[in-house]
């Protein structure tokens, strides 16, 4: 049975491994966000339903070149802090507005990126970063359904930005919107599969 919890809700006083979005006070575990409780015999965490992107080392993110400086680029990755990437580490030069796919290498006062790849012309949509796991699905199941049914190329950034190139962009966007709005419900993967098949056939 799924359960929605709000910030401050008491979750357990058993000794369990603490996952994300929970906090410990006087040996009791509480939720720190509005989200879905995820609890097993030895583990407790809360899956948030909304929230800002919190970067982690190794995250694959999508970025947009924001500014060109004499020695490098300022890259926006959908969060409060911008990244700087030096020109000396790039083979080709980039332009303001270019979209890249990269990995987070280090987080300090700045964010360091590595494995920067320039993405071709396409579109970007912005979703809450906490919904990204649902858009990818277990073993990429949801993502594969989205790609296959709409004949699209989709690259998902952990930071909540999704790059895509599609023959039916409106159907794809609508499907992603449905996932975002109903992420707390079960059986979403089957529903989206049926939904996309219907929409594409109608065309």
């Amino acid at each position: 049975m799924k359960k929605i919890v709000v910030p401050g809700d008491f979750l357990t006083d058993e000794r369990k491994k603490l996952g994300s979005n929970v906090y410990l006070k006087e040996n009791k575990v509480y939720s720190s966000v509005l989200g879905i409780l995820s609890e097993s015999n030895d583990y407790v965490s809360v899956i948030p339903l909304n929230g800002p992107y919190v970067p982690q080392i190794g995250d694959a993110v999508i970025g947009i070149i924001k500014l060109e400086m004499s020695n490098g680029y300022i890259i926006d990755i959908n969060m409060a802090l911008d990244c700087f990437f030096p020109k000396s580490l790039l083979k080709k030069s980039l332009q303001v507005g270019d979209v890249i796919f990269a990995r987070i290498k280090e987080i300090s006062d700045f964010i360091d990126l590595e494995n920067i790849n320039l993405l071709p012309k396409g579109r970007i949509i912005d979703v809450p970063s906490v919904k990204i796991p649902r858009i990818i699905g277990k073993n990429d199941s949801m993502l594969n359904i989205l790609k296959k049914n709409t004949a699209s190329n989709v690259v998902v950034g952990k930071n909540g930005w999704i790059w895509y190139f599609s023959k039916s962009p409106l159907v794809l966007e609508k499907a992603i919107d449905l996932i975002v709005k109903n992420s707390q419900k079960s059986n979403l993967t089957n529903f989206i599969d049926d939904y996309l098949k219907k929409q594409i056939k109608r065309k």
Binding site: V6, P7, G8, V33, N50, P128
Partner: peptide, 11 residues
């Protein structure tokens, strides 16, 4: 703030 998904100790 809770709707925005900000981490909070309570409401």
């Amino acid at each position: 703030a809770a709707d925005a998904g900000l981490p909070m100790k309570g409401l």
